[in-house]
Design a binder for these strands. Structure first.
Length: 423
RNA sequence: GGAGAAAUGGCAGAGUGGUCGAAUGCACUAGUCUUGAAAACUAGCGAGGGUCACACCUCCGGGGGUUCGAAUCCCUCUUUCUCCGCCA
């Protein structure tokens, strides 16, 4: 969530920037400022009441010690109203603080100045494009047909044991998945990211920390018995490693990578575009996460983008990079670059990575801070990106690398697969 | 799952009703000394709110209660440890 201090200091600027998301934040911001004012005045009243009560208590103690029970009892009677007052003020304070919190949760992150205005993915700005789009035979197949033809992914079997959106990878398909995971992790660790293995279920506090809760509750699978959530991305457990932490400046940059399966309910998704691997309830992803000094976070973001580029180059997949417009930008992000691979057989772009800077938005919720050169605690910046999400990379490989003789394996993956062709 | 013990600052660890946000040690930061480092010495050193700055307020696992007053007493939840059971 946004920092209260920032809203106080830069109210108009924030309202203006949020217009790029096509929302009029003015009423919410106004509400925040009023509640903040109320909160502080209530707090002051409560503090004064408590201060007086503390003072009286000390005096009473001294009287008792001196054996002056009479005087002590006189003072005791005075504490009654103070107690009532502080109880009432405490309740008021909680109510106001909760209201304030609830409204702060409703305000999305302020878009970076480079974010283009716009409503839908049509308005995203293409900033880079690379790679040759292969010319395929006229009988080229989309990946779901290829998966069947070569018996490497079984969607029906997944339906049988779990449900739609839970594919079963078989034989060389399974091996290719494992190869991709290893390859991505190797690339990321070579680039300086430390590999982590983290839990695939998280508690409620973690969901709040990275912003999945409270607004995207319906998108996560929830285990009611234990009140845990299946992670929708490794971003959640990895970023939450730093919840309630105070780093020192020399800890930067923090660079982590983790492979996890990701679970998403995808409530409300349907249609032709969700066929095959395009949209799943469970999929694999290798994530990169960084915690940065505010001054370096955009440089870090550029570095992450460059890093993802090198992977796609090695895989020789045609891709483009989009700068997301305000309307398409995630709730918690300040700036996001989406990577899309062109699927020739489907004749469309598939999103395979999303790299974002959250600035202080997540860190503020997480209470992720660092000590600056003056010894003051400051909120850090968090970033993350996919490097990469497997299913659509797999789709891209299957579709773009298909030949009459079978599916070629990209050269860099051959050592990881142990074969160079699926036929 | 059963029985018992525990939860205090970055870590270790005192503190069982009042002057305790909390002794002490370690770690850390700055300074003195040193060619430099170490050692020694000196000082500082939790977080949040509030204030121009002070004052002041809150926090001793979470929540609730008793009391004029709670780290300390009571209830409850969570977690950790030990023993037993089960087990990849």
């Amino acid at each position: 969530m946004l920092q209260l201090q920032a809203i106080r200091d830069r109210k108009d600027e924030i309202i203006k920037a949020l217009k790029k998301r096509n929302i009029d934040a003015a009423p919410l911001v106004q509400n925040v400022l009023e509640l903040d004012e109320k909160r502080r005045s209530t707090q002051t009243k409560l503090d004064n009441t408590l201060a007086e009560a503390n003072k009286l208590s000390k005096e009473i103690g001294l009287f008792f010690k001196a054996g002056k029970a009479q005087e002590a009892n006189v003072l005791k009677e005075k504490t009654g109203t103070l107690k009532e007052d502080s109880k009432r003020l405490g309740d008021d304070l909680n109510t106001v603080a909760d209201e304030l919190q609830a409204i702060l949760y409703q305000i999305p992150n302020v878009p970076h100045q480079s974010v283009p205005a716009g409503n839908t993915d049509e308005d995203n700005e293409e900033v880079f494009k690379e790679g040759e789009i292969p010319t395929l035979n006229t009988d080229a197949l989309p990946h779901w047909d290829l998966a069947k033809k070569y018996d490497i992914i079984d969607f029906e079997l997944g339906v049988k044991i779990t449900g739609a959106g839970f594919p079963v990878y078989k034989g060389k398909g399974a091996r290719l998945q494992r190869a991709l995971i290893s390859y991505f992790l190797d690339k990321n660790t070579e680039a300086g990211y430390t590999e982590m293995q983290v839990p695939h279920l998280v508690n409620e506090a973690s969901g709040f920390g990275t912003g999945q809760l409270p607004d995207k509750e319906g998108q996560m699978y929830h285990v009611g018995e234990d009140d845990l959530y299946l992670i929708p991305t490794a971003e959640v457990p990895v970023t939450n490693l730093f919840r309630d932490e105070i780093l020192s400046e020399k800890d930067f940059p923090v660079c982590y990578t983790a492979y996890t399966p990701c679970f998403r309910r995808e409530a409300g998704s349907y249609g032709a575009h969700v066929r095959g691997l395009n949209r799943l309830h469970q999929f694999d992803k290798v994530e990169i996460v960084r915690v940065e000094h505010p001054e370096n976070s955009y440089k870090a973001l550029d570095g992450m983008v460059e890093h993802v580029k090198t992977i796609l180059r090695e895989l020789k997949l045609p891709y483009r990079i989009l700068r997301l417009c305000g309307g398409d930008l995630g709730f918690t992000a300040a700036l996001t670059y989406d990577f899309e691979v062109f699927s020739t057989a489907q004749d469309r772009w598939l999103e395979i990575s999303s790299v974002s800077n959250f600035e202080t938005y997540q860190a503020n919720r997480l209470k992720l801070r660092y000590k600056d050169e003056n010894g003051k605690n400051q909120v850090a910046h968090t970033l993350n990106g996919s490097a990469l999400a497997l299913p659509r990379v797999l789709a891209g490989i299957l579709e773009n690398y298909q030949t009459k003789e079978g599916i070629q394996i990209p050269e860099v993956l051959v050592p990881y697969c142990g074969f160079d062709k699926i036929d």
